[in-house]
Design a protein around this nucleic acid. Sequence first.
DNA 1: ATCATTTACCCCCTTTAGGGGGATTTTACA
DNA 2: TGTAAAATCCCCCTAAAGGGGGTAAATGAT
Lengths: 212, 212
Amino acid sequence: MNTNLYQLINCCIIEDDEVIRNGYVSLLSADEDFFVSGDYASAEAALEQLDRIRPDVILLDIQLPGMRGVDALPAIRKILPGVHIIMLTVHESDDLVFTALKNGASGYLTKNTSFNKIKEHIRDVIRGGGAMSTEIALQVMKYFQKNQHSPLTKRETEILECVAEGKSRSKIAQELFIDQETVKSHIKNIYHKLDVNSRAEALSVARKSRFI
Amino acid sequence: MNTNLYQLINCCIIEDDEVIRNGYVSLLSADEDFFVSGDYASAEAALEQLDRIRPDVILLDIQLPGMRGVDALPAIRKILPGVHIIMLTVHESDDLVFTALKNGASGYLTKNTSFNKIKEHIRDVIRGGGAMSTEIALQVMKYFQKNQHSPLTKRETEILECVAEGKSRSKIAQELFIDQETVKSHIKNIYHKLDVNSRAEALSVARKSRFI
DNA sequence: ATCATTTACCCCCTTTAGGGGGATTTTACA
DNA sequence: TGTAAAATCCCCCTAAAGGGGGTAAATGAT
């Protein structure tokens, strides 16, 4: 019997694949630092029990039948505001990654992550850090990177960035020491290149393609 | 003499602190997987030699005298487009983190990262992954997280998100099954709450505060 | 040296958005 | 069940943005 029960990391696993779920349970249970307080095949089943088992860390599969993992996130947060939630996924290049991050996940790991690393990442989040497998980190970094193949010229990009800050034609003209009509001209050209017809739309398209 | 020279990871270190720089050099050189082809106290000094030493990975300090690390990034990329650049920093909560990510860093590590982990991260980027220490990962995740204390109501947030996608009043009205005037009303309220007076400005402010 | 691109500027006109006032009805919650 | 907040809709008017057309100087690459 472990005499340091208070130090154990209380884990909970939500994962629909029975084999994987049991794998995590037995491997975590085998480690003297971890204690598995619950394992569930669906978010719904877990949500009923969470206030009772009060885990420190939840391993949450992104692809669940019924309520999706990303949607379960806010629901779990409502019950246990302080819990660390680590998302598990097979698809690293999914929009769900960013949705999950927005919804407040503490970490994001691909399922091919070795179990030793998973344990390490759990300890990381307990210490207050963030957990991210290398595949996800790469995704995130790609997300930040500007697209090198922008159809916009330097000046156009410059002006679109002013637009992104909410500046009016006159303000942009003033800042760049050019005429308002010139600004208008540039914006028109930007619209043609991006095939849009409003500022917000141009920003939306340009952001999606990382031109700005 | 190592007979697997071709397998060695060719590293280069750009770091102004002599002690830290030499620490990295000796520790990396001591590992049979790594080969240190150069170490420099400034970006300028390194840039002169890069095309000759052709490293696989560059450890680049963010805070350098003269040319800053983040500014050196694009310059290095120009000389060696394929090189993996790992940024090193003491301040994890710096805007420079995001600037570096935008400029195409392959990784971002805080200097308190253990040397073993640094070596692991170098191997990660060589494999095509991304490297991020837990502190940086946390920063990045915070960056993504929506602000829970938004002054905007659900409906207002919903409408602002439509605005962010470049939709016009009429389109938003159509999508939400409400009148154009209602949309206008909501947008007016949003403007008052955010203290702005245009769509792009509202988006700019709302994004900065993570309301959307 | 030349051709394409970029940057800059001008006019007329239409559409959309924004500022100011309202009012009414849900909805949430104490 | 009463009240506040949120959501809905209406009007008048002005300011800003967008669509169409155009010209011309600077820049850059071949």
